[in-house]
């Protein structure tokens, strides 16, 4: 086996295992840490796909930003450590059955479709062409996404403001 394939299987096993912990862990804090690990390994998958800029973006935004936010959310909304450990959930079999059905459908599509399979050539660094694409072809979407982000952040800080009780 070549190196890329070995790296892929190791990364994939780690991603699936830690995503499984994130889904089925009893403690929500453990789930958040498992999600952290899963997203971190996904950056490795991006690197395997020659998406260097995205790999770094994944680490900086997901792992450094969203997960810290998530942990703040967890720690701000738990009354006690006891509740944190015994977060209840619906019976396993409902979620597992639905997820299994969806997975079966996806696998069916995966096997029955013939996907394009050329690749294998080395890509140059993607950062410069991505920047050109974002600021020329997709500049409108880019600016709108920055406005969306601004609106979302202002909205979030408005939502969590301390309300004046009269």
């Amino acid at each position: 086996m070549e190196g890329g394939l070995i790296a892929f299987w190791i990364l994939a096993a780690l991603i699936v295992a830690s995503a499984g912990v994130a889904v089925f862990a009893r403690s929500i804090v453990n789930a958040a840490y498992a999600l952290f690990f899963s997203l971190f390994m996904t950056a490795g998958i991006y690197a395997l796909l020659h998406a260097d800029f995205l790999a770094v973006t994944q680490v900086v935004i997901y792992v450094g930003g969203i997960l810290v936010l998530l942990l703040f959310g967890i720690l701000l909304t738990n009354r006690s450590l006891e509740e944190l450990i015994t977060s209840s959930r619906r019976p396993y079999w409902v979620g597992s059955a639905i997820a299994g059905g969806i997975m079966a459908v996806l696998f069916g599509i995966l096997v029955s479709t013939s996907w394009p399979e050329q690749s294998a050539q080395q890509l140059p660094a993607t950062t410069a062409p991505l920047g050109v694409l974002l600021l020329q072809k997709y500049v409108v979407a880019f600016e709108f996404s920055s406005l969306t982000l601004l609106g979302a952040l202002i909205g979030a800080s408005y939502l969590v403001r301390r309300k004046e009780r009269d």
Binding site: A22, V23, G100
Partner: peptide
Amino acid sequence: AIVFALGIAAVVSRKNAV
């Protein structure tokens, strides 16, 4: 596909909003 199905399982079976 596997990660997507796991995400669906979490959305369906978790009671905690986080």
